[in-house]
Design a protein around this nucleic acid. Structure first.
Length: 560
RNA sequence: GCGCCCGUAGCUCAGUGGAUAGAGCGUCUGCCUCCGGAGCAGAAGGUCGUAGGUUCGAGUCCUAUCGGGCGCACCA
């Protein structure tokens, strides 16, 4: 019996109570689906609902009285073993072992589909994340969004959405000029420019650019006049950096559907197109020789310059055009993940969204994630791209591997700052909970292998009523929750919920395993339905662990 | 000054109004002749920053306040 079926039974009980006059409520006061949840306390049964507490006041009856009535109606439902009224008016529901245990087979038969849901069904979602400037390797902050964003894309897809992963490649402005001047300076052995970048990677990129140029039969850029040389370093340096970033992300298990170049917006006329639309809407005005967007009409705290008085497009012009471009490509929801250092954009971009006649918070959703701090021996370590003291995506993967890196970045709420301890990274990687979850998975594989060796075959029998141990009820309850967890992670855009769920599931599984309830019989024992049914349960756990780890982009090894 | 995020066990963090607030790490005590001990069982450890408020019920919602992080450009 699934929570949805239980919820349906509760709705029916309510409807019946209204029909025979026991419950004096208008039909529209009855919720379409009654919320049931897993109680924290095992003594409170398999499922609990507070529906009587919610409706009692409206109906003018005591909560416990209503609860007693509902309990009587519900307890006759097939699969329901007991319904108790507790506390101020909770309904605590206990299922038959058979009704609960049947889930094991359902999950195994659903396989990869178990956990999929329709909470985002039919939506075309554009998810933009990372979008780090091509002026250096991706550092730890960007890696966090790579892990979280890619996982979110997987979760949204599992929830029925059509998702495009997109990377906005910022190759237009003065940051790129600085980058080019820095490369030139490094190539010529001159000190880094005042406002430039000084990391060791700059010298490496400069060398690579020179090698690329020579390989193409071009002149050594060091022999060119500065202006020409700088252009060579800009063009080749950006291309080079772009390729490196793409490769690093690929090695991290993250591949984008679209790498969108800011330059293309300016070259294609997309910026003019977007500005023209805003002008037509009456949202633009001229002042001090510049062209402004009146974002204050839509809640921003000040108006924004779109075209500067020198005729150049301001940065926001690209963002405006980019947003419109995404919408015109047919995306319903445009989601952008940004670090907390960019949260100043939210107000103006929401205003832009509204100026186009869209709905902020729906057509445009901006997710702000907090920063990652590096800590060494308890002291914060400042990371600076210009000083070259950065922890890059490749450093992180090299130190702990893709699985541990992705998992440990995705298991935290994006709202919380992460303190990453460099010593811990290097020394104690076994502390990562990812191994706890992966170990549970490999255990299910080994258990199944041993069972097969002893002649236990799922198709020879399944009797869910035999899953009557307490640890089995706990495990089944946990397995039931998975689709809801995925749906919730999708709706709230919070992938960490999947990770936390998997840790709990792994814990329940390890605990069950240690009861020594035997999936594989001892060598001198007969194979019974007990073994076969437990194998179904074991394999159901494996299915959910595989599906869940997959949503995080983490592997599920068969042995460790 | 204004805005956003955070404050929960010694540490790192879960907990989108429910019952006795959880996990990992660390500390202490037990558990390997049989499906892998990267595991399990148990103990210790909390005025959920503080003060008010809403509610049958608040870690969760509201207000104020303290502490920390990050922002408030004709930069990108």
């Amino acid at each position: 019996m699934t929570p949805d079926e239980l919820s349906g039974a509760l709705s029916a009980a309510l409807a019946a109570a209204v029909a025979d006059g026991t419950l004096a409520l208008p039909a529209d006061a009855i919720p379409a689906s009654v919320h049931v949840e897993r109680p924290r306390q095992r003594e409170h049964g398999d499922w609990a609902t507070n529906i009587a507490l919610q409706l009692a006041k409206k109906a003018g009856v005591a909560p416990r009285t209503l609860a007693e009535d509902l309990a009587k109606r519900l307890v006759v439902t097939p699969g329901v073993k007991a319904v108790d009224v507790a506390g101020p008016g909770f309904l605590n529901i206990t299922l038959d072992a058979a009704a609960a245990g049947s889930l094991a087979r359902t999950i195994v038969e659903a396989g990869a589909a178990y956990g999929r849901n329709d909470s985002e069904a039919g939506l075309k979602i554009n998810l933009e994340f990372v979008s780090a400037n091509p002026t250096g390797p991706i550092h730890i902050g960007g890696v966090r969004w790579a892990a979280v964003g890619d996982s979110l894309a997987r979760i949204l897809t599992a929830s029925g959405a059509e998702v495009a992963r997109e990377y906005y490649f910022n190759d237009h402005g003065t940051q790129i000029d600085r980058f080019a001047r820095s490369l030139l300076a490094a190539a010529k052995g001159r000190p880094a420019p005042e406002d430039g970048y000084g990391g060791a990677y700059i010298a490496e990129i400069a060398e690579a650019v020179i090698a690329d140029a020579l390989a193409d039969g071009d002149a050594d850029p060091r022999d060119l006049p500065d202006a020409e040389a700088q252009e060579t370093f800009r063009a080749r340096g950006v291309t080079r950096m772009f390729a490196e970033i793409k490769q690093s992300l690929h090695d991290f298990g993250v591949d984008f559907d679209v790498y969108f170049h800011e330059d293309s917006l300016h070259e294609s006329g997309a910026v003019e197109h977007a500005v023209a639309r805003l002008q037509a809407g009456g949202h633009m005005f001229e002042k001090d020789g510049a062209l402004w967007l009146r974002t204050t009409d839509f809640g921003d705290d000040k108006d924004r310059v779109v075209v500067k008085s020198d005729g150049d497009a301001a940065y926001i012009a690209g963002d405006i055009a980019y947003y419109l471009d995404k919408r015109e490509r047919g995306f319903d929801d445009v989601i952008i993940m940004l670090g907390a250092d960019h949260h100043g954009y939210v107000g103006r971009m929401m205003a832009v969204c509204a100026a186009f006649g869209d709905t902020p918070g729906k057509n445009l959703q901006i997710l702000i994630g907090q920063m990652v701090n590096l800590v060494k021996e308890g002291q914060p370590v400042r990371m600076s791209k210009r000083a070259g003291t950065v922890l890059t995506i490749d450093d992180l993967v090299g130190a702990v591997g893709v699985d541990a890196a992705r998992y440990s970045l995705a298991r935290y709420s994006a709202d919380s700052n992460i303190d990453l301890d460099l010593d811990l990274l290097a020394s104690a990687k076994n502390e990562n909970p990812v191994f706890y979850v992966q170990y549970a998975h490999s255990r299910t594989v080994q258990v199944a292998a041993k069972a097969a060796e002893r002649g236990v075959r799922r198709e020879d029998g399944f009797d869910p009523a035999l899953l009557d141990q307490e640890s089995e009820a706990v495990l089944l309850g946990r397995l039931t929750e998975f689709p809801r967890i995925v749906a919730q992670a999708a709706e709230l855009r919070e992938p960490h919920r999947v990770a936390r769920y998997l840790e709990a599931l792994a814990g329940d599984f390890h605990s069950w395993y240690n009861q020594n309830l035997r999936v594989a019989p001892y060598p001198d024992e007969e194979v019974t339905d007990q073994h076969r049914t437990r194998l179904w349960l074991n394999d159901a756990v494996r299915t959910v662990l595989v599906n869940g780890l997959g949503l995080l982009g983490v592997s599920a090894p068969e042995r460790m």
